[in-house]
Amino acid sequence: MSDSDPVVLIVEDEPDVAETYRLWLEDTYTVRVAGNGEVGIDALDESVAVVLLDRMMPGLSGDEVLEQIREQGLDCRVAMVTAVEPDFDILEMGFDAYLSKPVKSDQIRDTVENLLERSEYDSLLQEYYSLVEKQATLEATKTSVELEDSDEYDDLTARIDDLRDDLSEMLGGIEDDDDFIATVRELNDAENS
């Protein structure tokens, strides 16, 4: 682990469980552990990429912590860890993934990796949008003859094509409903923040 590794915050009131998660993740990520919701909120800042959030905790519950994360407009992904298979409508909840206890090591690693990949998808999508805007500006201000002679326009078009391919390969495009909802939720949060 180094300073440049993505930061994963574990919010879990059972010390043994939190320690287990830490052992599984610390080779790849910078791990922070918080023993309850209040400490968890204090440990949150812009550097946190993924939060593993226990749902049932004394004091602030996981749902309440999640609400605060969303209200603060923090750009992190949240996996809710639940003791039982969720009986609620998981789509309506604001989290990006959920895990049922007992959680296995590969489940945690896969989930964190997938959530980080989604963040990268969001960054690529933003870059893609910026280039499409630039391309549209050139098209609106230059004649088709000028565009044909423009190296800038050629480069831009090539980069847009590459990015489009990258986006469709990442996560298999938007492969499933979870990816779709999480990505749209991120758009909505970005728009409102």
Partner: peptide, 20 residues
């Protein structure tokens, strides 16, 4: 209701979901 950036991204993401 939403700016051009957000609308574009929404269209792209929904198109991608429809694609898969």
């Amino acid at each position: 209701y939403a700016d051009r950036r957000t609308t574009f991204k929404f269209c792209h993401v929904l198109s991608s979901r429809l694609g898969s």
